[in-house]
């Protein structure tokens, strides 16, 4: 157990020592808060000028969760980089010399990714929400409005699971390029488009990000289903990653 703990502490040190992973985490915070402020500010303008461009289903509460939906891209990049950094250089050999048990290294890496994502997602989610409300001014809602605490908690869990999904996919692909090429477009536009087209709408509902988004939808009746679906995706990705990591030979 203490060896696993040492491995996890080492992964934490490694994460901070690699510039790219730290930058990704900072970017997640910056993008989330910036979009949250921008969204609130432009919504305020739209409300006050009676602009018809404002979405019909607009609520100040839900708008407070828009920032992290963009910020999550950086968090996915973070998850991918946590794993792929081992493959892009000869790092995996060094890591396995230090921690030769494959399972211990994989566990340490996923655990550190989860803890780091959780630790950053929690304040960023809360701050983003508050920043949006602040920007909305008189039209803003409160922190304890109906369904908001649950949606915020759901958002934090969602973000953490998405970063773990990224770790699993990167481990399975043993690179950064393929996971990023699949995950980023999927989250950014893919499932959005697919969920609008009638034929693919039913399928897109079961995509990890679409399903997971129910968790951060205020007053969603499908939050639990969304959690279970995203959990299944994450577990599948981490299992695939583990099988590939275990069979690493070199």
């Amino acid at each position: 157990m203490s060896e696993t703990l040492a491995a996890a502490r080492a992964e934490f040190t490694k994460m901070r020592a690699v510039r790219a992973t730290s930058v990704a985490l900072l970017l997640f915070a910056a993008v989330s808060v910036f979009i949250a402020a921008l969204g609130g500010w432009s919504a305020k303008g739209a409300i006050e000028s009676d602009n018809p461009g404002l979405r019909s289903d607009f609520t100040p509460e839900q708008a407070g969760l828009d920032g992290i939906l963009y910020g999550q891209l950086a968090l996915i990049v973070f998850g991918v980089l946590m794993m792929s950094g081992e493959y892009t250089s000869g790092m995996m050999r060094v890591s396995l010399l230090a921690v030769p048990r494959r399972g211990r290294l994989y566990l340490a890496k996923t655990a550190v990714t989860a803890v780091a994502a959780l630790a950053v997602a929690l304040p960023v989610t809360v701050v983003s929400y508050l920043v949006t409300q602040l920007a909305l001014g008189p039209h803003g809602s409160t922190f304890d409005a109906d369904g908001v605490p649950r949606a915020l908690a759901g958002a934090v869990v969602y973000l953490t699971l998405m970063s773990l999904l990224a770790v699993g996919v990167a481990a399975a692909a043993r690179s950064a390029v393929l996971p990023l090429a699949v995950l980023l477009p999927l989250v950014l536009v893919g499932s959005q488009i697919l969920s609008v087209i009638g034929a693919t709408k039913e399928v897109a509902r079961w995509f990890p990000d679409r399903a997971g988004a129910q968790m951060l939808t205020v007053d969603s009746g499908d939050a639990l289903t969304g959690l279970l679906v995203l959990l299944a995706w994450t577990a599948a990705a981490l299992t695939a990653g583990w099988l590939r990591h275990r069979s690493w030979d070199g």
């Binding site: 901070r16 690699v18 790219a20 892009t88 250089s89 000869g90 790092m91 060094v94």
Partner: peptide, 13 residues
Amino acid sequence: TSAPHRGMTAVGH
């Protein structure tokens, strides 16, 4: 064939 991550410092590694 074992090399530290290029983005790390010697001390960090």
